[in-house]
Design a protein around this nucleic acid. Structure first.
Lengths: 110, 110
DNA sequence: CTCTTTCGTTAGTCACCGCTTACGGTAAGC
DNA sequence: GCTTACCGTAAGCGGTGACTAACGAAAGAG
């Protein structure tokens, strides 16, 4: 359910850029906007989306506001992926084996 | 770089639904569309996006066309997440510790 | 108190995306 | 050869999202 927001949040290139910058350490909004090709309000909106997706956390520090990565959203995406990881690998292996036997379509039943 | 397509592909709810159905096993386009609230061409377009993102593979089977999950795209997303996973956890732990010492803002320098 | 800095929010515009309808193309069955 | 089933693609439309400009609020320095 909630991982929907996380995927949608990381779908935007600018938002991924912001997220990757925060991976290096906590930063304020102005520091993030400085160096990005968009205005500061745009960064603020992106941070709001990332916050609602559980990907970042904000902390007021005087007049400034420091943002930081939150492992919560990251964990949700990982859990969703792991749900298909083993299944996808085994299915892919079966497909490869089937492709090998494509010229020998006899039953593999004992 | 290429993971951008994967995130954008999984950002759409209908596309995630298609992907989750394929996780249970290979299916044709008509079988996928039957049971989804969208038309068959819509499913076909979604499958095209998923294919370009490296998330599914297609194989012609007579007049039908069978789609299947491709672990390639899934692995790219996992790699991208793992790039931040440890960093995010340690940063979060440091933040928690900082929050505990918030009433004792003295330098931790030796 | 005033001025500056920093940030969030709103209004408005513009491009992109997802969906449907309609059409063409290919493989199997009579 | 003709029909039926299955699928991809093009055109068109409505809705959502990303961005900028402008305004307002809060903290700190003078």
């Amino acid at each position: 359910m909630t991982n929907a927001n996380a995927f949608a949040a990381l779908a935007d290139p600018t938002r991924r850029e912001v997220f990757e910058r925060l991976a290096s350490g906590p930063l304020a909004v102005g520091e993030l906007a400085h160096g990005l090709p968009v205005s500061r309000p745009a960064v603020s909106q992106h941070l709001k989306v990332l916050k609602e997706a559980g990907l970042v956390t904000d902390r007021p520090e005087g007049a400034r506001r420091v943002y930081q990565i939150d492992p919560h959203g990251l964990g949700q995406i990982r859990a969703w992926l792991d749900q298909f990881w083993d299944n996808a690998l085994s299915a892919f292996a079966a497909e490869v084996e089937r492709s090998v036997d494509e010229s020998d379509p006899e039953k593999e039943k004992p």
